[in-house]
């Protein structure tokens, strides 16, 4: 089974709080169960994405790093 990403966000170069604000806005557009991926370069975004996922209960299914770019995949929570 292949994983389909419903939306991809390029947040490279942006600083706090913009990556989370743009992600929160984009997540609103998604249907429950859909996936959103985001690419960021702000090192603070690693803990911010984790904290955002925990408090909003949208699971962070992937958090990885490739060079200076951080890759996150969030799953929109089921209501």
């Amino acid at each position: 089974m292949s994983i389909t990403i419903a939306k991809s966000l390029d947040l490279k170069g942006l600083s706090c709080p913009l990556p989370i604000i743009k992600t929160a806005k984009a997540m609103k557009e998604l249907a429950p169960g859909q996936l959103l991926e985001a690419f960021a370069t702000d090192p603070g975004s690693v803990s911010d994405f984790k904290a955002w996922a925990q408090t909003t209960r949208n699971p962070l299914v992937e958090s990885s790093q490739d060079g200076g770019v951080f890759h996150f995949v969030l799953k929109k929570k089921e209501i």
Partner: peptide, 11 residues
């Protein structure tokens, strides 16, 4: 304003 916008982003 950073905290206010982030709070809103956190629902």
């Amino acid at each position: 304003l950073i905290l206010a916008t982030t709070g809103a982003a956190m629902g």
